[in-house]
Simulated scan of single mutants.
Amino acid sequence: MLIVRSKLKPVDIYCYLKARFGEPNGFQNFLRRNDSDNWIHWDYSLKASESDVYFAGTSREIHIIVGEPLSDQQWRDLIVGIKRDFARVGARKSEVLQSLEKYVVFQNKYVSIASLCANLHAAIVDAPAKTSFPKQSPSRKTQLKAVERAMRSVATRADELFGNCLKLQLLMPVMAEAFINMIILMFTRDAVRNDAAAYQAFVRAKVPDRLAMLSQNCDGFARHIDKGTEAYARFMRVMDKRNFALHGNVDPIREQIEVVYFDGRRPLFSTPGNHIATFFEHLEAIYRPGEVVSDYEAVHAFLWEIAQCLEPRARSFFEHVIDDAYPGFEVHMRRATRILPDAVVMGMLPTMMYDDDLQVEW
């Protein structure tokens, strides 16, 4: 037995075998499920004179079993001979290849960003409560240490919490757009998809306009996006905040924290209190953890509302694909769908030999 993982492409050997011998005839074809979630996807049981020859295709490997022992050089000659024989059935092999559906695998950015956002949301919600500074003056060494511990605790919480708030605030509108763009990719009508100018105008439109065009330019919608709902209004407020923050806009009056007067170079604060505690209170006011969490939940509520506008069958298909981290895009029909299982599985047999282990000259 030899496992080939470098010298033969699975699609090449499959098309060659199908061109020569027809449909796969091995026993694994009766065991496999009729989907892409199998260890062995196809196999052939063949005869070469009196010897049995067996080919099986996993995702990226070809397993070859012959009925007699072969030396490393004979294995090498077998692989080279198969590749040379491609030309003999080249026309038929090409027909088989052309008959296959061709997909490109791409990254579903919604899944990646939504996963990051979910982790940030959980970290914000589960963040430790604010630590209060001791109100009495630290008259003893033990009290001073308590103040130091409180300061370290507040600083650590602030570094993690407020950093997560900023990340989530910037990412959740991107997550929403990725969700909308997946709907466009999956359901855009052929008339729009095949018109380059119309399609570019659709995908590049501002978010409110893009939402309005979904039911016009996409199949599968049972009704328009309702702009009169509270979910829509809250979503647009989140997007407006994104537009302000995304460009690094600065509005000191709008974003003011407090008022400080100066006499020459002497700062005169208008708010009394614990200086360090007040500093962290200002950070809390800037990053607004509670508001960020509320905005995140509002975005998800509106995305759910968009999905509810789809017809039941289209919604079921969309839900099947939107959670796939690496969907496929059919090149000829230009349609996105789920093509591979979520789990990546590989079987390794410790006693087996691989083609790149052969002691031969290629």
Rank of each mutant, 00 (worst) to 15 (best):
P138Q: 01
L246T: 02
L100R: 07
T58I: 02
M333P: 00
H63S: 11
P341T: 09
P252F: 06
T131W: 01
R157Y: 06
F86H: 09
E50D: 15
K83W: 04
S94M: 06
S215Q: 12
Y261F: 15
G22K: 07
D85R: 08
A150E: 08
P173Q: 07
M239R: 06
I322K: 05
A336D: 02
L120S: 08
Y44H: 06
Q73N: 13
L283W: 13
F133Y: 14
S139Q: 11
E101T: 12
F162K: 13
L358V: 05
V80W: 08
A114R: 01
F86S: 09
I276F: 10
G67K: 08
E311N: 05
A19F: 10
R189S: 11
Y287M: 04
A150N: 09
F262V: 10
D72R: 06
V292H: 06
P138N: 02
C218D: 05
Q107Y: 02
M352T: 14
H121A: 10
A343G: 02
G81A: 10
G90H: 05
Q359G: 04
Q28W: 10
T142P: 01
E284C: 02
V238F: 04
D356M: 09
G220E: 04
F179D: 01
D355F: 08
Y16W: 15
R5Y: 08
L358P: 01
A56S: 15
L246D: 03
M172F: 03
S36N: 12
L283T: 10
K47Y: 09
H332I: 10
T337Q: 12
P267G: 04
C309K: 02
M172C: 03
P138V: 00
A231S: 14
N164V: 00
D324I: 14
R152M: 12
D37T: 02
H275L: 13
D240F: 00
L303C: 15
V147N: 06
A155F: 11
Y103W: 07
I253N: 00
L349Y: 12
T229Q: 04
G347W: 13
Q256E: 11
G81L: 09
I13V: 15
P341K: 09
V321M: 10
T337K: 04
M352D: 09
V321D: 07
Q200K: 12
V11Q: 11
V344K: 12
A176G: 05
R189W: 01
R204C: 06
F269K: 05
M175D: 03
T131Y: 03
Y14I: 14
R76I: 02
L358D: 06
H121P: 00
V11H: 10
E160G: 11
A212L: 08
I183W: 02
E148W: 10
V104I: 11
I79G: 08
W42Y: 15
S132L: 07
G26E: 08
A191P: 00
E311C: 03
A245T: 05
